[in-house]
Design a protein around this nucleic acid. Structure first.
Lengths: 342, 342
DNA sequence: TGTTAGCACTCTATCAAAAGGAGTGCTAAC
DNA sequence: GTTAGCACTCCTTTTGATAGAGTGCTAACA
């Protein structure tokens, strides 16, 4: 059977109505639509076909129909309105003074949650292949030195280090010089035993300190960027009756609290290589069990080449896809602006 | 009327039973207690008295009795068992390698939530009256310098700074020398205009850079320590039927997500000056509206004099106070150990 | 041939009444 | 002072009846 124009229209109406109400949609409701002008009986015939084709199902005999994942998929793929974006200026809601990127992202999550009434999560930017740009160790007092490492993406890591024997000023200068000349521009794979041996030979003693410093550098380069995930509005999920009753919802809320799970999700999902920036996952497509009754819309933002992060919105399947997509799109361009000005 | 020994015993049994089951407790249930060996009729008389005295209430005629806040108060004040602490070694559950304090505290929250099945929150340590211990600026490339500030509590702050004109090496050494000699040991109130003027006179030019650096220092000293709150197990709250149905619970979950609210709470609650380290708030005593059906147990940890943070557990009123208090107590001593070894 | 009206049927949601259960308060006896 | 017994209350659960919504099918219509 083929999806006739009319079937499509009816399906669209069913989906739209269901998105609004969350209740199964019956043939009479549809028949009232002035655009179609068909009797409920005709609609019933068509609905019967649509059901056979797997686009809608009845929760039970004598209930209206509700869209299946397949229908949602069709809807978001082909029926989304290019509606005129009268989305509020999100930028205004972002505190312009937010100098630090983490504060900004936290705000993004919050603004999105407030605007959409769904749960949102934002992952911090992930830097790939980090290299050492600058190293400096500085004695602070007799028993501790401060190690500062600047990476090529201008991230700065620092840590205090306890030492057993004091290091004199001259030694510090020598150490800094050797470390910088030897390690500058290397990534973690290039710091092999040969190089380490070379450093130790040049310095002569204080090998314990060198080991500690090298360990710090290793951590700085491999560290998981502290899996920074900002979430907001997780409790919005409880606003949708079809979700709030489910047992999976507790699990889902948990996932939002234990950001690690979400992090995994973002990790395993490839940076949707230059396809389209906005991706929609419906039900099982999310591959997350506790989200099987939810939909998820994600967008990828890019700060520079290779530096990207994700923004995700989780809600019921009957999500207002139109609004979510356009809000996200608008937000992405505004973020672009902000990053470009930096 | 006075609380006789027997009344106390009966009340205790009622509370214990209710803590376990969450269901109203009837006279028959109590009469089965081998320790009391009284008929249900006798119990009924006593219960009637207890009700009159405000320790228990009936949710409706012909239901069992449930303890009031007053009864809980009495219970935690006088009846808590000094039960032999067979609490698991929490320390083992804390990853010893957790070098950084924020990782440690995050773990503390999680371990507590897992052990108690309640929601937990941990506030990061708050440092009072911070002073400058060490300042260093370092040129990274032509247009940026790195500023590192070490505070007297050994916290390290750093930030990149864009500059218009390059600074030569000699100038950097001079700047560092002047900044350190002038500002070392000062807190934010002591950095007045006179001192700033003195610095600028000594350096001669580059006043723009100095302004920026001083601003950073100011921020580092006054910054709100990023109101670090770690929460865990918020969804545990949903495990208790008497809470999960309430509308306040969504609000409470929200409070856990928006950590700010909790932060406020911790802020306004004084660092319970050397009283007892563990405090119990029942119902309205929490002063938080969304917690009026909950109880909260908090403990204060101290890293050094004047450096403290709080650990809190939120659960239903029928919380296992015994366990929570002893777990917290055990955790506090173990944290003490960890901090002392530092 | 596509559309529609009509009707029987199914299932759910809702309400009221009934039954069962738990618990109390009171009284009288021990 | 304690307890057994009983009437009473109120909640919870079950049951049955009813109304409503929606469907599928058939027959009539254009």
């Amino acid at each position: 059977m083929e999806l006739s124009e009319r079937k499509l229209k009816i399906l669209q109406t069913i989906i739209r109505t269901y998105l609004e109400t969350g209740e199964p949609v019956g043939s009479r409701t549809i028949s009232k639509d002035p655009e179609l002008n068909l009797s409920s009986a005709t609609i019933r015939n068509e609905m019967s076909d649509l059901e056979e084709m797997g686009y809608i199902i009845q929760p039970h005999t004598s209930a209206g129909r509700i869209p299946t994942d397949k229908a949602y998929r069709l809807y978001v793929d082909t029926m989304l309105d290019d509606r005129t974006n009268e989305v509020q200026n999100l930028k205004e809601q972002l505190d312009e003074k937010a100098g630090k990127i983490d504060v900004l992202l936290k705000q993004v999550a919050k603004v999105l949650a407030n605007n959409t009434n769904y749960a949102t999560m934002v992952s911090g930017p992930r830097y790939q292949s980090k290299k050492v740009k600058f190293i400096q160790i500085t004695p602070i007092d007799e028993s501790s030195i401060l190690t500062v490492i600047v990476l090529d993406n201008n991230m700065v890591k620092n840590q205090m280090l306890k030492i057993d024997e004091p290091i004199d000023q001259e030694m510090v200068v020598k150490l800094n010089f050797i470390l910088n000349t030897t390690l500058n521009g290397l990534d973690v794979t290039e710091m092999n035993l040969a190089i380490i041996k070379k450093i130790k030979e040049q310095v002569g003693h204080h090998t314990g300190v060198i080991d500690s410093v090298l360990e710090l550098i290793g951590n700085a380069l491999t560290e998981d960027d502290e899996l920074e995930i900002y979430t907001s509005g997780a409790t919005n999920i409880l606003k949708y009756p079809e979700l709030s009753s489910k047992s999976e919802t507790t699990e889902l809320l948990n996932a939002f609290e234990e950001k690690r799970i979400i992090n995994n999700w973002l990790e395993t999902t490839p940076p949707d290589s230059e396809t389209h920036d906005i991706q929609i996952y419906i039900g099982d497509e999310t591959k997350v069990d506790s989200m099987k009754d939810c939909s998820m819309v994600t967008a990828t933002y890019r700060i520079q080449e290779g530096v990207y992060g994700k923004i995700g919105i989780v809600g019921p399947k009957r999500m207002d896809y139109d609004k979510v997509v356009s809000t996200l799109q608008s937000l992405m361009t505004q973020l672009d602006d902000i990053f470009k000005n930096d």
